[in-house]
Structures are given as structure tokens and as C-alpha cells.
């Protein structure tokens, strides 16, 4: 789906001054989104961005589309109500690791499992930025921040694993500064019917700088980015010298490509069974070493809003358009003269 209108990035850029900290990874994501939507043929008036609370959740103010900056953690609930009633719209949810995985974890799980037609973009910076630097549900064990002076004792959650466990039909991961990769992933999310979940590793240069350096630093990233590509063997490294193979129990490990021989896992995001996708998501927890990015899962399942409309249309064709007088007179009535 390429651009069929004459719109440009400018048409998706609002007149509001962007107020993230200089150097924040959010800028790169915003620019990518503003540039991508016209390429996809999206219309500003049919596009809605809904966010919760947090740094990332200011995003809608900067898009010249419809938008709601809602309350902490609840963006998927507003987006659900909107997407269910308005199938003609492109509804995006912008959330973060605190908003989407902590206070709003419940809603994320349920929006994904229902497969409502939404694109949920989670900016993961492993920190609470807006409240000035407390550990988040994705901060690694031991992370020292304002509320964890002796180190975090919380086991962090892996957002991709969580989404897969929640029956999400589209699950992907990208990186704020990898513009081409991010565009590719967001395009696929946009084109997927049903709920799409995209985790974006996003650097918070003020409170958690360098969290993803292993995947972002030009020298390190070639050794650590495991790029998942449909129907391709999963290998990585400057010379493709590392490969992902499956253990006997289905879990994955990294070995040398040489040792792997023909055992290298060939990536198939369209496989209905999510087991392999889940195993891939477990290759890295907090990404300090090799970590997969790309589309983990992309399958077609019935979409909630379609099913609901089928029920409504079905009821109408079976019972006729609802007649109020008939409804009120249903059951036993009697006449008083």
C-alpha cells in the first residue's frame, strides 16, 4: 500500500512545539511516523492517535490527525471503543513501558487477545521519564534508579513475550534510530488486520542513557542485532557468522553458523502456532547482547470489530431493523380502556 495521495510529512505535522528533551529517542520515532503515513496513503482525518500518560504519550499532540491524550495506562480502552464503533478509521495507540506494561498492563493484554483492529506502539526505554527516573517493569534486575537506590529487585517483563502470551496476532520489535527497519515494521503493523503490537527500543538520554547501546552503537550493533526476515535463516554478525538453532526442547540458542549447519532456524512469522515466535523472544531479555528485532508473528485471525459487525448485521437480516414500538410491546401486554 503505497501513497496514492499528494500528502506529505507536513500534512501530518501539527503546529504544536515538540517538548521532549533534546536528544530523546522519541523525536526519531515521531519523524518516522510523520514521514511514513503519507507514504502509506493514510489520511490525516481518518487517522487517530490515542495515548496514555508518560513522555511517549505526548505523541498525539504533534500529529496533525485526530488524537486523544488520555489517562495513565488506559489508551487501549479508548482505542477499543473507537475502533469497535468506527471501522473506517486507522487507530494507533502510543504507550510506554510504564503506561502500557505497569498501570495499563491489563488493558494491553485484553486489547491484544480480542484482536481489535489497533496498532499499539510501545516505546520501551526501561525507565519512568516523566516522573523523573524511577525503574519500570522492563528495567533489569539490579537497576539503580531513584526508587531503587540499592538496585531493582523486580523481575522485568519481556514485552514481546507478553504480547505473544496474550495471543497477539502481530508482534514486532524495532529501534528508534533504525529508520528503515522501523518503517518496515510499522508498515507491516499498519497493514495487519487486527491488533498489532510493536515494541520500539527507545533511548532516554536523560534518565537511562545507553540502555540499548548494544543494539544501537554502530560498532556493537552488527554483532548484536538479530534481524528476523521472513523465510530467511536466522543468522547475524558482520559475516553472518552467528546463527540461531533450536534445542531439543524447542528453546533457542545462538551458535556459530558453521556449527549450525542445516539446523539454522528459518524464520516464519506467519506460522499460526506461536511457540517458535515465543522461543525467539526469549533469546534476549534486557538487550545487552544479541537480541532479535523484526516481525516475530504476523497471522490472520478473526478481528473483534468484524465479528461484532457480523453479529449486528446478522441480527438485522434475521430480525429486521429494530422497531421501537415492537420492542416496547414485547412480552405480555394488556389494554386498559
Amino acid at each position: 500500500m503505497t501513497g496514492n495521495n499528494d500528502l506529505t510529512k507536513k500534512d501530518f505535522t501539527s503546529d504544536q512545539e515538540v517538548r521532549w528533551c533534546p536528544g530523546c529517542g522519541d523525536y526519531a520515532i515521531l519523524a518516522t511516523m510523520q514521514g511514513l503515513l503519507p507514504e502509506l496513503g493514510a489520511k490525516p482525518e481518518s487517522t487517530v492517535f490515542i495515548s496514555g500518560i508518560g513522555c511517549s504519550s505526548r505523541f498525539p499532540y504533534y500529529m496533525d490527525t485526530y488524537g486523544v491524550h488520555s489517562i495513565h495506562g488506559r489508551a487501549p480502552t479508548l482505542a477499543s471503543g473507537l475502533a469497535i464503533t468506527r471501522p473506517d478509521l486507522d487507530v494507533w495507540v502510543i504507550t510506554g513501558d510504564g503506561d502500557g506494561l505497569s498501570i495499563g498492563g491489563n488493558h494491553l493484554v485484553h486489547a491484544l487477545r480480542r484482536n481489535i483492529n489497533l496498532n499499539i506502539i510501545l516505546f520501551n526505554n526501561e525507565i519512568y521519564g516523566l516522573t523523573k527516573g524511577q525503574y519500570s517493569p522492563t528495567s533489569p534486575m539490579g537497576a539503580v534508579h531513584k526508587s531503587t537506590p540499592l538496585g531493582s529487585i523486580d523481575q522485568p517483563v519481556n514485552p514481546v513475550s507478553l504480547a505473544l502470551g496474550a495471543e497477539a496476532t502481530f508482534v514486532a520489535r524495532s529501534i528508534d534510530t533504525e529508520r528503515a527497519h522501523l518503517k518496515e515494521v510499522l508498515t507491516a503493523a499498519y497493514e495487519h488486520r487486527g491488533a498489532s503490537f510493536v515494541e520500539i527500543y527507545q533511548n532516554c538520554n536523560v534518565f537511562n542513557d545507553g540502555a540499548f547501546v548494544a543494539l544501537k552503537d554502530p560498532k556493537q550493533k552488527v554483532h548484536n542485532q538479530i534481524r528476523l526476515q521472513q523465510d530467511q535463516p536466522i543468522t547475524f554478525g558482520p559475516e553472518g557468522e552467528h546463527a540461531v538453532v533450536a534445542r531439543g526442547d524447542g528453546s533457542m540458542k545462538v551458535v556459530s553458523t558453521e556449527d549450525a549447519g542445516d539446523r539454522v532456524v528459518v524464520h516464519d512469522a506467519h506460522k499460526d502456532d506461536a511457540t517458535t515466535a515465543f522461543a525467539l523472544s526469549r533469546l534476549a531479555h534486557n538487550p545487552t547482547g544479541p537480541a532479535p528485532i523484526g516481525i516475530f508473528r504476523d497471522v490472520d485471525h478473526p478481528v473483534y470489530d468484524d465479528l461484532l459487525r457480523e453479529q449486528i448485521d446478522g441480527a438485522r437480516s434475521k430480525r429486521g431493523d429494530g422497531q421501537l414500538q415492537e420492542l416496547l410491546e414485547g412480552g405480555s401486554t394488556w389494554e386498559v380502556v
Binding site: 488520555s70 487501549p76 480502552t77
Partner: peptide, 14 residues
């Protein structure tokens, strides 16, 4: 909470 959120979303949509 989700019920209330969905209502706001649907109202925003008309």
C-alpha cells in the same frame, strides 16, 4: 475502567 475508557473512545467517534 476499561468500560469507561471504551465509552469515551466511542463518544469521541460519534
Amino acid at each position: 475502567i476499561a468500560a469507561m475508557g471504551s465509552v469515551i473512545g466511542a463518544a469521541f467517534g460519534g
